[in-house]
């Protein structure tokens, strides 16, 4: 019932030891491991989202920070609304993980919203990547980024996926990216293929005709290393044997999200910023 005397003495004494924490951002260990700091959507490997779980999660949140979109099987978590009650973790430990992280502050309100969608269980959705890219492009290029695609001997699998970026579902133009008809109009070259010996000269010419500053992205396993074709009499074993490469996007073929992520990385890495 009564507080211990030591503290009382301390209080009376009035001579404080220095209790201010030095460098508060780095001293994680002063935070309890079970401190409820950061609610995140981190699914277990075998987690499958369905209507039932979605409803339960939605109802579990007292502040309606969790919303479930039935049509596209998505869970949105708004950290700006969350009061860290931990109710959701109790209801669905396979999806919700609470860590003691506290570095949650964001510059934009929207960034506080986290999404888990069935189609992209890990990482960011296509839309999130796209918006991030759009902001970058706005800042650096003023709204538009021009890409020239060059097929240097691919099997056309990568072309299918790059074409898919332009279909109404992925619609890359809404993020300010256009595919242009000539390397002379381009900021970025997107190159596919192992590349073949027969395309070596054309690729070099296209690279030289692209105005500086320029970026080259190697798309697909073939462009990164020669892929299954390797380095034989007809191929050269990777784009970087012919022109300098800024970003490598692996995959056979890389899906549209992966392409967008690679383009984002190229801009982040670039000397444009």
């Amino acid at each position: 019932m009564k507080k211990n005397t030591g503290k009382k003495d301390h209080f009376i004494d009035m001579s404080f030891e220095p209790t201010t924490i030095k460098n508060p951002l780095k001293m994680d260990d002063s935070i309890a491991a079970n401190y409820r700091g950061y609610v995140t959507l981190d699914p277990n490997k075998d987690f499958i989202l369905n209507d039932k779980i979605g409803k339960i999660l939605e109802n579990s949140c007292p502040t309606h920070a969790i919303t479930y979109q039935k049509d596209d099987l998505k869970i949105n978590l708004d950290n700006g609304k969350c009061i860290l009650c931990g109710n959701c973790q109790v209801k669905s430990p396979e999806l919700i993980k609470i860590t003691n992280k506290f570095d949650l502050a964001k510059k934009r309100r929207d960034d506080l919203i986290e999404t888990f969608s069935m189609s992209v269980p890990f990482g960011k959705t296509y839309d999130e990547l796209g918006k991030e890219l759009k902001n970058k492009i706005d800042k650096i290029f003023g709204r538009s980024l021009a890409i020239r695609e060059i097929d240097a001997g691919s099997c056309n699998g990568c072309e299918i996926e790059i074409n898919a970026l332009n279909n109404p579902i992925y619609d890359i133009e809404r993020y300010g990216i256009t595919f242009v008809a000539s390397p002379r109009h381009a900021d970025i070259l997107l190159v596919t293929g192992p590349p073949s010996k027969n395309m070596e000269r054309a690729l070099k010419i296209a690279y030289d005709s692209t105005p500086n500053p320029k970026l080259v992205i190697a798309v697909g396993a073939c462009a990164c290393s020669g892929g299954i074709f390797g380095n034989n009499y007809a191929t050269t074993g990777g784009i970087d044997n012919i022109v300098p490469v800024n970003v490598y996007i692996p995959g056979c073929p890389p899906r549209p999200q992966a392409l967008l992520y690679g383009i984002l990385m190229a801009i982040n890495k670039s000397g444009f910023a």
């Binding site: 073949s196 027969n198 074709f229 034989n232 007809a234 191929t235």
Partner: peptide, 11 residues
Amino acid sequence: LGYTHKGIEKL
């Protein structure tokens, strides 16, 4: 044509 020749048959 022939620009995408990758030596598949030899490989």
